[in-house]
Design a protein around this nucleic acid. Sequence first.
DNA 1: AAAAAACGTTTACAAAAGACAAGAAAAAAT
DNA 2: ATTTTTTCTTGTCTTTTGTAAACGTTTTTT
Lengths: 192, 192
Amino acid sequence: MTEHFFTYTDKFVNFTQADKELLASALSFRQVKTKTELVSYDKRTDELFFLLKGCLRKYYLKDGQQITIYITTENSFIGAFDSFITGTASKEIIETLEPSELLVLNKKDLDKLYNEIPLMNEFVRKTLEQTLIQLQQALTSFILDSPEERYTKLLSQNPEILQRVPQHMLATYLGITATSLSRIRKRIVEKS
Amino acid sequence: MTEHFFTYTDKFVNFTQADKELLASALSFRQVKTKTELVSYDKRTDELFFLLKGCLRKYYLKDGQQITIYITTENSFIGAFDSFITGTASKEIIETLEPSELLVLNKKDLDKLYNEIPLMNEFVRKTLEQTLIQLQQALTSFILDSPEERYTKLLSQNPEILQRVPQHMLATYLGITATSLSRIRKRIVEKS
DNA sequence: AAAAAACGTTTACAAAAGACAAGAAAAAAT
DNA sequence: ATTTTTTCTTGTCTTTTGTAAACGTTTTTT
């Protein structure tokens, strides 16, 4: 069950077998159906998720509208980091878009792991470095690229996402309206 | 000289005096004038910077145009993280906008520090956590807010930035053209 | 199987932004 | 002090996006 998770950690550090057992016992498995809220609006969250199977999104509410700010699929970490780290209420909502399987790590357990496993800080540090690079690239794309460019980049990096996520969610994720994305798609078809 | 730097580290971990001496000896002081390139296009970088005094920006080249993607002032870290971490050539250019004073940390020295100072991973981990939260907020603002909202938010968070950074750089930083920012400013003045 | 909800596209109109060029104003260099 | 460069604003025109509503289709729910 934790197999894919350790495939992930092996990319960053060499946990000992004892480390892995400690880690594994801190992780709890959770199976949830579509539209399950893992983090809710204005609630504190003390959980991080490693997505084994399925699809998640993170969204904000703006004027009653749901604006998707992050989408992810198998074998990645997700959490409402702001709330998780600072202990404040989350303005981000995380929900499943498909029936999903997760590993859940509690904040208290994580803090314990930092003490029990010397490599833990290094592992998280390296994970954050990668996350930072990705986030920087996403931000840069908003500054540098047009919505159309962002859409085609997204498709080339992650073609299956169009099958798994409704277009209107992709639209807000790209920073535009569903109407506008529909027009962009039409424009692309007409070009070719 | 490293006073402000340790004021910064103290927010995250309690380095011992010995730790601080190791750290201080790894940092080199650098004083540079305006328009100095700290990281150049298509060159690898093995340096991180802690800005003691002055102002820096990070920018990209797109179709020959300079697009500013990050601006920072005193007492913060900056670096071309992608190039620094992955060892690839940097597409980001970092330059000073004012005469500046920096502490420079070399990658090899940093790697040494990770071995010599047990708290180092924890310090960087916590620094990255904060950076991540900020970056996430910046990205979210691009998705949620209009250019005008981003501009007024920027001004309220950092009013002095308008005095220190040319408007056309702020414009690209906000994801718009200089022309458009000028019109937004006009619109705001007319409202009040 | 029928009803309800969610989804994707289209249209008309308004608002905003980009491109390009011209000119004024301010800052920097000589 | 004068010249040069950089910066900011304005105007015109085009393109793109947003808003709101309508409509058909697909998916989900009951």
